[in-house]
Design a protein around this nucleic acid. Structure first.
Lengths: 237, 237, 237, 237
DNA sequence: CATGAATGAGCCTTCATTCAT
DNA sequence: TATGAATGAAGGCTCATTCAT
């Protein structure tokens, strides 16, 4: 277990340092603003050393995105355990989405970056695999909640896979947060309370599917607020 | 009407050529991949000539995005006239979204790019204004349909502005299409028919709001299919 | 005399307009900052039109410099008439130098620009000739004062031409004003009153040559002050 | 002493090469004529390599100017030690000015360039400081000679700081050499022996201040000639 | 394994000048 | 004669990547 350890650990540690240094640069200045030169200077390591750890810049971005996805997955997993009421478990995941997009903006932004084909394609096959696995697991958590709801009789799934069912909620929250983050002027357009209105749409959608137990929006809203407070933002090591 | 015409027209035409040449480069290779150098070479014009038409690269991107937004707005406007049934009018707009995201992928991608702060900020104030106006008008079309539905008694709007109501559907379709475009592996994840499932979610959401007239999903689906066929992809001049 | 006149006059007038517009650009932004493009835009004339008047950019700069030299020559001429005392006539020219360098900074700066070989060489032979003539006449005015002083017995010229004699005073004032204009920090270096100290050096130099009538520095200083007030800054047409 | 040596030395050496290559380009073609592209080509190094040594073009110019100033300072220092007669020490510095302006024309030209605000402002704070210090030291050497003369009773300083006193001689020699360098046609104007005449003016000015020991111009001229021969043009390392 | 100097293609942009209309 | 679109070389500068040490 701990063979080769010191060296190994040092390497892992350095990789963590690199990523920790790179993240704010990436978030603050965008993909083009992350420069290997500056990264090396700030790290007080040589540029060549960076390249010993990551074969190219995209790999660093992908590694950061993986960290972010991992964080989100953790939050999903935690959220899914906060209640034994299937509808509230789903709501908790919605709350996790909100919390992630708002309080972990940086992570959300980096995740979004990965959705750029060029970065994705230049990332190593191995890292791609890790990312895919992580996404699969995150989806698995949510789909699991849906499956449980069906099994418990709280939800009657129409002709859809649980994943397709999840996809709707995912689109709704994901889409809304992208729009919020990139449209500084939503209020000018008449969308005064975007987050709250998405909560309302999500509530309506659940009602539309007859997800039990039904509850008033006020109760649902309060409940999401409480759930959000109980979700902790995981730590990266 | 036709004063200053020949020269003027030639210039306009060349600008169209530039944009037409730039769009695939932008879409294929991303913002960083659109290079003024290469654009000039492929156009077989001098670099300076490009700069006589557009003061900088961002202006080109913004011009493309405006074209795309304009196209979408046209599709929305057309869609909103395809029925006198308020729910079907909303469905038609949903169908326009689908059609736009799928058949005008390039336009969708360019629109997305504009959501990058840096590009937006370097675009000319004038172009920014045009873009804002265009977005406002598009939102206006959809919000108008909602208002009509309310006025007709087909829809009872909860404590939301019509725009906030629209925002939910916008997030759902926008989010889903971003995810579809950037997740090549949705089926691997269990999302086999993403577009159809979003239709289903939209239908459920409308039902959740009790938007009249209710209809079966099969009918709704068929209807959207027909509406989509009647929406034409506008022409740029 | 006034044949061809209207057209001719219009042309002359336009040239004046061009120069008037170009001067502040040249002074504010330096030689590289004078751009034919911007000049044309601000003139509301086409670039080609500029080139009908001036075959190249250097020619414009040379024309401006000629105007400046011309202005200085006028000031010298006026200064040389303000007294019948030969020493005071020379002092008046010194006062003109001061006034020119300080109150006509722009002109002084443009003159200086012409001392750049590249600009000089690209100017037309004809303009070069005009400039040379203008400088010759300016020198002639000052050398004339010296000759008069010698003729009157106020000054005994050592083994030097009058022009060489003038060259000393020219170097002193010219040098000091270049240094003043380009060393923002003379006071930091201990040179607190550069202008006054050059007056003192000039006064000492005249004394060194025994230029009659001798006078105290205080008187000389006061006298230069008065003379400066009587020199008017000529008008360009 | 010799730690880090080989690499370090190679780098220093290359910087010297760059500067050595840049100087003639700068002198021949002016500031705008020094092109990083051409410099790289002539150096047979990549453009990026230049930028590894100097962060921008202005830094190169400033570095060259610093070299030049340093050279002049050395010459001043050496000159100030060539006699124990205070007046001859000042003359020696005058001779150094002459020698510098004539035999080190390139250096003189580069120094002049630094007097352009734009270059100065883009130079690094550090280089600016070095330049300021160098100028201060040069001024200090000359002002020191003046102070010694006063202390020895050879010179009675009027109501001026030693630096203001120096400023007069500085203006005289500096101005004359700028004029000589930029007026190819002084003889046409009647200034046949500009250098000799400035010597005469300097001699007269010293006499005007009663700087002891007085001497004939012939002796002074011969003396300056001898002093000039004893000033060596320093070496840059 | 770490280093960091060297690379060089590429970036966006400017601008004096030309010339067909 | 006036126009201004087109030119295209040149500009300064960046940066991911390599490789000799």
């Amino acid at each position: 277990m701990h063979t080769l350890s010191r060296k190994q650990r040092e390497i892992q540690q350095r990789e963590q340092q690199i990523l920790a240094m790179a993240r704010p640069m990436l978030v603050r200045d965008g993909y083009a603003g992350l420069s290997m030169d500056r990264l090396a200077v700030e790290m007080e390591y040589a540029k060549g050393t960076l390249y010993n750890h990551f074969p190219n810049k995209e790999e660093i971005v992908a590694a950061l995105a993986l960290e972010s996805l991992e964080l989100r997955r953790q939050m999903f997993e935690q959220a899914s355990t906060l209640s034994d009421n299937s509808r509230k478990r789903m709501m908790a995941i919605g709350a996790a989405c909100e919390k992630y997009a708002i309080e972990c903006q940086q992570h959300f932004a980096v995740e979004l970056m990965l959705r750029n084909a060029i970065i994705w394609e230049k990332a190593s096959e191995q890292r791609q695999q890790l990312i895919r696995t992580c996404e699969l697991r995150a989806m698995g958590v949510v789909a699991g909640v849906v499956r449980d709801a069906v099994a418990l009789g709280d939800l009657h799934l129409p002709e859809m896979t649980p994943e397709e069912f999840v996809f709707g909620f995912w689109s709704l929250t994901f889409g809304s947060h992208v729009l919020i983050a990139s449209s500084p002027s939503l209020p000018d357009i008449g969308v005064n309370q975007p987050v709250r209105s998405i909560r309302y749409h999500g509530w309506t959608l659940m009602n539309g599917y007859g997800w039990q137990p039904l509850m008033s929006f006020e109760e649902s809203d309060r409940c999401m607020h409480d759930l959000a407070e109980r979700i902790s933002i995981g730590v990266q090591h």
